[in-house]
């Protein structure tokens, strides 16, 4: 079984996403950290209001790919990017586009819950305040917390520190915080890896519920999770997008040998 990917690998695509359903279109994206190439010519179309999962072994570049969609990688000084990401007719890496604009529209939830050392309320209101939200803040906070299925648990603790919540609650707070800025896309970077099974279950249910309002792209190294929450799955290996397609297809009938090996747990 070979673990190296041939230079000229062509991504295997099952049931490609139709042009009119696309929201984010990653177009021949390559990325380097100094000399190290972390992404090799990745092209992936993400459909609107669906959940797309990125899977693969550690170090395959799935987090890097996710973080390049909202240009979080710009924060690393040694990063160099080639290729394009199309987004509603715009190009995210165009010189005229500010990374701040991109993140305004594409929110993110991180691997470890990272609420600000502020109150629950202030955590949720942080983004809207940043963007000069003019409406009723109390309503928006309530709506976001309800959207993240957290309202019932925290409605009496809005003025307590977000750091006082349990791990699962903290992560849902982070989701509510991301939702409050009303982005189009929410990126989730292994959002349950630091949580216990019950908290994980709640987050997974939540992902199901929010996809009617948001497009979700989720990185996970838990294949069952990808199977449970996502509509489409993309498998990456060593910076290359090996295969992508509808989740049930990828899991029941993978086209590429490497995908099959990974799915069946033979490496990774």
């Amino acid at each position: 079984m070979s673990q190296t990917v041939p230079e000229n690998h062509v991504t295997v695509r099952t049931d490609p996403v139709a042009q009119e359903d696309a929201l984010v279109a990653i177009d021949h994206l390559s990325l380097w950290y100094d000399q190290f190439q972390a992404l090799r010519d990745v092209s992936l179309t993400v459909p609107k209001n669906q959940v797309t999962a990125l899977i693969g072994a550690s170090g395959c570049g799935k987090s890097t790919l996710l973080r390049s969609i909202n240009r979080m990688n710009d924060l690393v000084p040694s990063v160099r990017v080639e290729g394009k990401i199309h987004y509603e007719g715009a190009e995210l890496y165009d010189a005229s586009v500010d990374a701040v604009e991109v993140r305004r529209r594409i929110g993110m939830v991180f691997q470890k819950p990272n609420p600000f050392p502020k109150t629950v309320y202030e955590n949720v209101a942080f983004g809207p305040r940043l963007h000069g939200y003019k409406g009723n803040m109390d309503e928006l906070v309530e709506k976001s917390l309800k959207g993240a299925a957290l309202w019932d648990e925290v409605q009496d603790k809005l003025n307590q520190s977000g750091l006082g919540l349990s791990g699962g609650q903290q992560q849902r707070l982070c989701i509510a915080r991301a939702m409050a800025t009303e982005p189009d896309v929410i990126l989730m970077d292994e959002p349950t890896s630091a949580l216990d099974p019950i908290a994980t279950d709640r987050i997974e249910q939540l992902i199901h519920e929010i996809k009617k309002d948001f497009t979700v792209i989720i990185v996970t190294h838990n294949m069952q999770q990808a199977g449970r929450v996502s509509d489409r799955t993309a498998f990456m290996h060593l910076g290359v997008l090996i295969e992508e397609g509808p989740t049930d297809q990828i899991f029941t009938n993978p086209q590429h040998e490497m995908t099959e090996n990974y799915i069946s747990g033979r490496f990774g």
Binding site: E91, L92, V97, E101
Partner: peptide, 10 residues
């Protein structure tokens, strides 16, 4: 380039 945001927000 086409902006991804409204003019005001931009």
């Amino acid at each position: 380039s086409v902006s991804i945001l409204s003019d005001a927000e931009r």
